[in-house]
Design a protein around this nucleic acid. Structure first.
Lengths: 210, 210
DNA sequence: CGCGTTTGCCAACATTCGTTGACCAACGCT
DNA sequence: AGCGTTGGTCAACGAATGTTGGCAAACGCG
């Protein structure tokens, strides 16, 4: 402990000799988690991809769960929708999500793992709660409806990601990006800003609230 | 081979003494696959739930993959939408899917596994291709747009199922069924029957086709 | 009643997994 | 140069998994 490190808890400032290895591990881990899910992405396979010994993974990330946590540190980089004309937020949202998803295999990894592990599901939940919900709050009329509307938006966005990037339905994967934007834009727009549709004219008439 | 069985390839008509056990295995398997996914749903755990020996599972279903295949034999029971007024197909579709999903944990199991295994993904793909696409064909104006529109419908339906039944986002799980119907209905309706939105007014104007 | 078939359990197998600790080599400060 | 620190490999561990084969009891036809 004489060279390069600061007080504990502080983020390290100077570089370590092993940084390239750490990065290689993370890169391999993201790839494996994205293509195989949590269980099938073995530490041994990840280490092989990163061309190092499995024990290094343990040394640097403590445990497989720790590695996963480090591999999927995600910032959705949500844009400031309040700066846009109201009628364009839907399309902007759709476009932004497509871009994020296609440049970042981390998101696919997260979704794959989320489907099988409680920890992954909670993580995904946190990410959407912390990052999508505030955006909905910016645009939504009634603050009380924000969670409901954010849930609908998330369902459509995650559903597209699921069919396109995880399950890889050909008809979903073949869609052009701008075509998706054109279809999903109005949907998201409506979920965010349209007046509450009320309940369909079933027994009881248009009274809502669950 | 003297008692009760018919020619090979034919579906068995009479009952076997082990039918209750087989059913117990399937029931336990569906539960485990639905809650744990493919890898974490161990044969031993399934056998324990069914109160029999793990080797019985192998005897009756050959292999773990075989068990999974037998456990998720799914019929979406798609209703005949052509009998409905055109403007109600969206809501009817949403309502039907919610009902199917809530009475049948098989669907959750399938989706959980689909996210991590290629076989599961293909199976899900087949189910939606064979069962949702024909329905879309019934309602869709232009036959050439059927796959595209079916993909959009599937993305919204699976997205809701994902957030509500698999990831269990509280804000999605808390929604009332009829409220979901009221929100998703128009979306599905539009994906199925609305005129193609064209591409947004980006460079090139409203020319489509990917 | 015999006797082959079915149902079931038990014990074991080979493999794979995450994880650990001992050991060696290169580095970099004093 | 000397020496503690760091980066990395090797071999092994215990646990868990899918899967197999043998053996005992229950069954049901002749």
């Amino acid at each position: 402990m004489y060279t390069n490190d600061s007080e504990p808890g502080e983020t390290r400032t100077t570089a370590r000799r092993s940084d390239s290895t750490r990065a290689a591990i993370l890169r391999a881990a993201r790839e494996r988690f994205a293509s195989d899910g949590y269980e099938r992405a073995t530490i041994r396979a990840i280490a092989r991809d990163a061309k190092i010994d499995p024990s290094m993974v343990m040394r640097y990330y403590g445990t497989k769960e720790g590695l996963f946590a480090a591999a999927v540190a995600i910032d959705l980089e949500m844009p400031d929708l309040s700066a846009l004309p109201r009628q364009e937020v839907g399309q902007a949202l759709a476009r932004h999500f497509l871009a994020m998803w296609e440049e970042n295999e981390v998101l696919t990894a997260l979704l794959r793992v989320a489907a099988t592990s409680r920890a992954g599901a909670e993580r995904t939940q946190d990410i959407f709660r912390d990052q999508v919900l505030p955006v909905a709050r910016q645009v939504c009329p009634d603050p009380e409806q924000v969670p409901e509307r954010a849930a609908l938006v998330s369902s459509q966005l995650l559903g597209l990601a699921l069919t396109r990037y995880v399950l890889r339905f050909p008809s979903a994967a073949d869609l052009a990006r701008e075509e998706i934007v054109a279809w999903l834009g109005p949907t998201l727009q409506r979920y965010l800003t349209a007046p509450h549709p009320g309940l369909p004219d079933h027994p009881g008439g248009p009274s809502r609230r669950r």
